[in-house]
Design a protein around this nucleic acid. Sequence first.
DNA 1: CAGAATACCTGCGGGC
DNA 2: TGCCCGCAGGTATTCT
Length: 279
Amino acid sequence: MPELPEVETIMNGLKPQIEQAVIQEVVVRQHQLRWPIPLTLNHDLSKKKVGFLSRRGKYLLIPVDTGTLIIHLGMSGSLRIVPDKTPFNRHDHVDIIFSNNTLLRYTDPRRFGAVLWTKDNAYQHQLLKSLGVEPLTHHFTADYLQKRAWGRRVAIKSFIMDSKIVVGIGNIYAAEALFMATIHPTTPAGLLTQTQYQKLVTAIKQVLTLAIQQGGTTIKDFVNSQGKPGYFAQQLLVYARAGLPCRQCQTTLLSFQLSLRNTVFCPKCQPVFNNSDSL
DNA sequence: CAGAATACCTGCGGGC
DNA sequence: TGCCCGCAGGTATTCT
């Protein structure tokens, strides 16, 4: 799915289109996503003016004065502005129609995403309240990661993909950041040195920032709010490159399953960290 | 408690 | 050509 840079890209594209716009009607054709879409959505949102969009992790928040629409794109979701009265296809589950004739369409073939409504502070919502720090803020530091990792044997790749620790990092950017920081993906989180955590934090901030600048990563089907792909895929160092030469040292990149996720790394640039007696 | 497995759903590519 | 299998960018929940 869209990871943090992709959600950020979509949000930035939507801002000028729907902020301050008034919702006329919400049409839901398929309620069964990861959680059911509330039946009251049209009633809750009709005639309401959209405020300032924000993002928390991979959740997009669309506020109106009586509550907030919370959208997650799962693995295959997209959110696009399409011409008014565009015919809908099989996986076009939700249309939000604005009084200025803007049509915002939510599409999600795999239906792993979510469209939820809360009248309360969205940040206190069950799905958001336990989320970890935002990686692009000053709260995300080597010191923070190292403290949270103390005594833990979980693989560092799984650790940085854990949204209770830090949000927004999925399989693509986890692999990229670990390569940039020259850290082997299975290194127990509690064993990384302060220096390694410093390199990792720097790499994560760098790769996410770069990906946002490139409009996100399109491997297969990611498109922004205007239906255009992102360009970061061209700069991927390891993700989707198993069997190809490392861009740094030409060694053949390897892949293996880690917690059921495909994991690519360079065996030379990311050597196994061998100090398992310390835990 | 930590860590691993499982569940949700559809589309696609590869192998036969 | 068509069928079956495995895999895909996520994450809450269930299990051991």
